[in-house]
């Protein structure tokens, strides 16, 4: 009964993500218009056959821009979370397998990073590194590190006391071998769950940074940047706020739903085990 519902959530999330991924894939081969071609005679067009989602303040085709933006959103989301989860896993695993002083210092460092509001940490790094796509990726990755470090820390700690780990230890397997051969495979599902949910929030931060003018830079397109650029015209042309806003929500919702559904099924499996 409830398993069926989880599957529904998962399927719905997958559909949303598939929509975004297909848009992204198609955008590499086909775009209705040049996303950066300005056409001052066609500014603020309403949706039509020619311009599916209308045009913006420079007469650029909004649909094409949304398609191109999906590339950046997925790229930034994937790369930053991969980077962040990898570093976080290493940090968390070291903290969990070390003792006393080292452990508590590492955990305080993780706590310290947790105290930074995500966007604040990202802004701080952007201020130092400069605006731009790759700096945004680094900033978001660093934001993700403590999230994954905390999770891996508790997961590894749980596994450490398991029988098979103790057995491996008793015949003298090295620390690294134990972590990679024995512990990692068992905690991987939980990490993947967190990975999916984190991509949602990474894309959210990217769009916020771009909205503030600190992420993706013009003339490249990003959903957040599109909203920011058309901001002063939205009072007169409210429609401008919707296409990029809605695709952003669809993307984030999709990844969040997948993460939640996976997490729920995992909690249930553990409860019934």
């Amino acid at each position: 009964m409830s398993k069926l519902k989880d599957n529904k959530l998962l399927v719905f999330g997958l559909i949303l993500v598939m929509i975004v991924i297909s848009i992204c894939v198609v955008s590499f081969f086909y775009l209705p218009h040049d996303p950066n071609a300005m056409n001052t005679s066609d500014r603020f067009q309403s949706p039509s056959i020619e311009y599916l989602l209308g045009t913006d303040q420079f007469g650029r085709d909004i649909f094409s821009r949304i398609m191109v933006s999906s590339q950046y959103a997925l790229l930034i989301g994937l790369v930053s979370v991969t980077l962040g989860s990898f570093l976080g896993l290493i940090l968390g695993a070291i903290a969990a397998t070390s003792k006393g002083f080292v452990q508590s210092i590492l955990m305080r460092i993780i706590d310290g990073f947790m105290a930074f509001p995500g966007i604040l940490l990202a802004m701080m790094l952007v201020a130092v590194l400069g605006k731009g796509l790759w700096n945004a990726v680094i900033a978001i990755a660093i934001f993700m590190v403590p999230v994954f470090a905390r999770l891996s820390y508790s997961l590894v700690l749980d596994q450490k006391n398991n029988l098979y780990v103790k057995a491996a230890k008793s015949y003298g397997a090295s620390k690294g071998r134990i972590i990679f051969k024995h512990i990692l495979p068992t905690i991987l599902p939980r990490l993947i769950t967190q990975f999916s949910a984190s991509i949602g929030s990474a894309i959210l931060i990217e769009s916020s940074l771009s909205f503030l003018g600190l992420g993706v830079q013009p003339p490249d397109a990003s959903w957040g940047l599109m909203l920011s650029e058309s901001r002063q015209y939205t009072l007169t042309y409210p429609f401008l706020a919707f296409p990029s806003g809605i695709i952003l929500i669809i993307t984030v919702l999709g990844f969040n739903l997948i993460g939640d559904a996976l997490n729920d099924s995992m909690v249930k499996r553990r409860a019934s085990a």
Binding site: L227, L248, I249, V252
Partner: peptide, 10 residues
Amino acid sequence: QLGDAMPQFW
């Protein structure tokens, strides 16, 4: 879910 997915600036 919607609250989590909606960007505040939007």
